[in-house]
Nucleic acid binder design. Sequence first.
RNA 1: CGGGGUGUAGCUUAGCCUGGUAGAGCGCCUGGUUUGGGACCAGGAGGUCGUAGGUUCGAAUCCUAUCGCCCCGACCA
Length: 598
Amino acid sequence: MKRWSQFFVPTLKESPADAEIASHKLLVRAGLVRKLSGGLYTFMPLGLRVMQKISQICREELEREQPAHQRPGAIELWMPHVHPAELWEQGPRWAAAREIMFRADSAGSGKGRAKEPEFVLGPTHEEIITPLVKQEITSYRDLPKNFYQIATKFRNEIRPRYGLMRAREFVMMDAYSFDADDEGAIKSYLAMKASYEAFFRRIGVKAIAVEADTGVMGGSFSHEFMVPAEIGDDDVIYSEAGYAANREKATSALVPKDLADAAPVGAVEKFATPGVVTIAQLEAAPYSVSGDTQFKTLVYIGDGKPFLVVLRGNDELEEAKLGSLGFTLFRPATAEEIEPVLGAKPGSLGAVKGTIKNASALAGVFADHAIRLIGNGVTGANEDGFHLKNVNVSRDLAITKFGDFRRVRTGEPCPQSGQPLQSRRGIEVGHIFKLGTKYSDKFGAVYTDDQKQSHPMVMGCYGIGVSRTLQAIIEQSHDADGIIWPWAVAPFQVLICLLDPKLPDAVAMAEKLAAAAESAGADVLLDDREERPGVKFKDADLIGIPLRVVIGGKGLQAGVVEVKPRASKDVEKVELGRAEARLIELVRAASGAQGAAA
RNA sequence: CGGGGUGUAGCUUAGCCUGGUAGAGCGCCUGGUUUGGGACCAGGAGGUCGUAGGUUCGAAUCCUAUCGCCCCGACCA
């Protein structure tokens, strides 16, 4: 039991000026965190307690065996946060990852510094765990293994945001699975998915698993765990039938699978379009070419080489989908880079065979499936001020490969059920990746099988943003007065408000009830401060302890104490003689409900 | 990094346009009256107005630079 007067819960009446969203304001007002600098926060005693509770439940769920997926629990370890830069240079993504990494060299004399960092701060640990496992595991007998840690991560976010939502330093659970083969890796992946689901259920968070892009992490498939919230950074595309995917990854059944290629309507014909450089201008009179029958040609630079992406005029590129092309780094080309390759400025570009000035310079021409709906359309002539019509997809375009590159729109048919797709914002609190052998190949993490054959280990990696989850809980569970903590992660489960700390009978009752609640397994905070009742009630609502017990002079005279769940408006008056038993009953019911959920 | 905004006491802020002794509320300290939803009265402490230059007799206020922070975009747990 903690006594408020001896503890440290600095609450604020007013919201800090730099907090925009409810959860961020409440984090600070309830005394859970204090800001050091942008994206850097101190966890105050109350905030730390919540982190520890979340972490502990996370451990329990990760270490639980998953018999349904034939996988043992994960194993906790602890890795350094300062990483030799060499390891990252050896790994597969140094070029892409270094931009978000802090360097951790000697601060030196202040007179200049080395060009390249010797040490970096870890944004994640694939580059550390893979060499470790290579060194320690060489036999199929030692597989599968899944190692995890709950530790600080460092990312030099260009724009930290919303308190703990996107911080430069944050607490993450990161896990890494190693399997002998692909089948095993899928079992490990599914086992982790099950652990995540149990974890989020137990901490009282409504998180849904959605299909996701693998990003710079690489790998073959992945799911994100999203907490639905307006302030989330991600768009989740879903249908009533159960399909759910990050917008970056989402597809639709817009293009029928059995769509036949259109027959050409005539020869390709050049026509003058002076000054026309946008889809919209070509849609307008006198040209009146609907956007849905125009080809939009975009130029990107992938690992130094230009490539083309062809979309329908009205469709938008979903840039993340270009990740499937296999480039380590890619970006839109500049106008200066485009002209020597295509022969025209942006606005008159196209991918018709024979019109590209320097086609051999291209790393490829990638077309979205949806252009097949056009059949015969209009595109740039690669000559400023001219376009081509009667352009037939299969006859005229120099397509290297078709793929899914367009951003889906709500209302399009769900790829699984055909129902209209919908969209909502979400906070990404967890991510699981099936990595394959991307890292084990690079670092030579191989094992020997029972036939004396050597194989690369098949990996998976998994993250839960612990500090972000903490804030997501507040975002999901608060009202106008403050936080409403779910029982399992509340910094304390029972708050005893001692309205008259000078009244010996009241103090005795408070101590007795505290002991009773503790005996039933609750963490108890006793508000023994010399404050007016109003202050205590406001603070109680603000910090959101799930069960509040009020012991006041008036109540004692009437022979009762009051019990009120934070989430409810109803006060229960309990006779003094029954108070202990009733409190124990309520604590057991609340913890039992959690246990059942787990 | 591009765009927008903002820095005044521990916190929330007024004053800036139109230069002339820096003001309030909360919090804090002392005393008193209070005591079931952020009490009241009296007294008090606390500010190099982000920093550095400049203009001026005089700068929180005008100009320049610089730093921090917040928001929108690209990235992520």
